[in-house]
Simulated scan of single mutants.
Amino acid sequence: MSRRALFLDRDGVINIDHGYVVRRDAFDFVDGIFELVAQARARGYLVIVVTNQAGIGRGYYTEADFHALMEWVGEQFDARGGHIDKVYFCPDHPEHGVGEYRRVSEFRKPAPGMLLAARDDFDIDMKASLFVGDNLTDMQAGAAAGVGTNLLLTPEGSCDFAETIPSLQAALSFLR
C-alpha cells in the first residue's frame, strides 16, 4: 500500500539559509517547521528531506560533517514530536564541484532523482504527497517527479509549478 510523504527542502525551509550551513551554532530553524512536521506525522505522512548540498562538492565541508549535523537535526525533531524518516542529498555540482563531485547528476534538483529514489524506497504515492521548497528548482523537481502538491515558500511571486505560501503555517492547511 502506497504511503503519502511530506518532502522538504532543507536550506530555506527547515533552516534559515545562511549559505552552506554545516555547524549547529549556525543552524537556525525556520518558524513553524516543528509544528508542520509533527502535524504531518500525526496525519500519517512520511517526512523526507531532499536537499542539494553543493557545499560538499565545493569542498567547504565533508559528507561526514553533513551527516553529523543532520543527525542532530533529526534529534531536534524527535524531541519536538516530529520525525524525519530519511534525508536524501546531492553533493554534486556540474560547474563548481571539486574532483568526483564535479558532474551532472540526476539527483541534483531541478532533476527529480532524489524524489524518485524516495518513492521507490518507501512506496510513496506521489500524487497524494506534498513538497515544500523555497526555490524554483525545488518546484521543478517536484513537478517532474509527479508530486501532487508543490508549495513554494515565498512571501511574493508566483510559480507555474506550485502554489505559493507565505509561511510554513500556511502549509498546514494542505495536509489532509
Score class of each variant (00 low, 15 high):
2 S>D: 13
3 R>P: 01
4 R>I: 07
4 R>M: 09
5 A>R: 12
5 A>L: 08
7 F>L: 03
8 L>R: 11
13 V>G: 05
16 I>M: 09
16 I>E: 14
18 H>P: 03
18 H>K: 14
18 H>T: 04
19 G>N: 15
19 G>D: 13
21 V>C: 12
21 V>R: 10
23 R>G: 04
24 R>F: 02
24 R>W: 13
28 D>L: 13
29 F>P: 03
29 F>S: 04
33 I>R: 05
39 Q>P: 00
40 A>H: 05
43 R>L: 08
44 G>C: 09
49 V>I: 14
50 V>G: 02
51 T>K: 03
51 T>A: 12
52 N>Y: 03
52 N>S: 03
54 A>R: 12
55 G>F: 10
59 G>H: 08
60 Y>E: 12
63 E>T: 13
63 E>I: 12
66 F>E: 02
67 H>E: 14
67 H>C: 10
68 A>N: 14
69 L>V: 00
75 E>N: 06
78 D>R: 14
80 R>C: 02
82 G>P: 07
84 I>M: 00
84 I>C: 02
85 D>R: 04
86 K>F: 05
86 K>A: 14
88 Y>Q: 06
92 D>Q: 06
92 D>S: 13
94 P>E: 10
94 P>C: 08
97 G>H: 10
97 G>Q: 05
100 E>P: 03
100 E>S: 08
100 E>Q: 14
101 Y>F: 15
102 R>Q: 14
105 S>A: 06
105 S>M: 04
110 P>I: 03
110 P>Q: 07
112 P>W: 05
112 P>G: 09
113 G>C: 04
113 G>E: 03
115 L>A: 01
115 L>R: 08
120 D>P: 11
124 I>K: 02
125 D>G: 07
125 D>E: 06
126 M>L: 15
126 M>T: 02
131 F>Y: 07
133 G>N: 00
135 N>D: 13
135 N>I: 07
138 D>Y: 02
138 D>R: 01
140 Q>S: 08
141 A>H: 00
141 A>G: 05
141 A>P: 09
146 G>P: 00
149 T>V: 15
150 N>H: 06
151 L>H: 05
152 L>Q: 10
153 L>C: 04
154 T>Q: 15
156 E>H: 13
156 E>S: 15
156 E>P: 01
157 G>I: 05
158 S>E: 14
158 S>N: 07
158 S>R: 15
159 C>A: 12
159 C>V: 09
160 D>V: 11
164 T>Q: 04
165 I>Q: 10
166 P>S: 09
167 S>Q: 04
167 S>R: 06
168 L>V: 07
168 L>D: 06
169 Q>Y: 13
171 A>I: 07
172 L>G: 10
172 L>V: 05
173 S>E: 15
175 L>K: 12
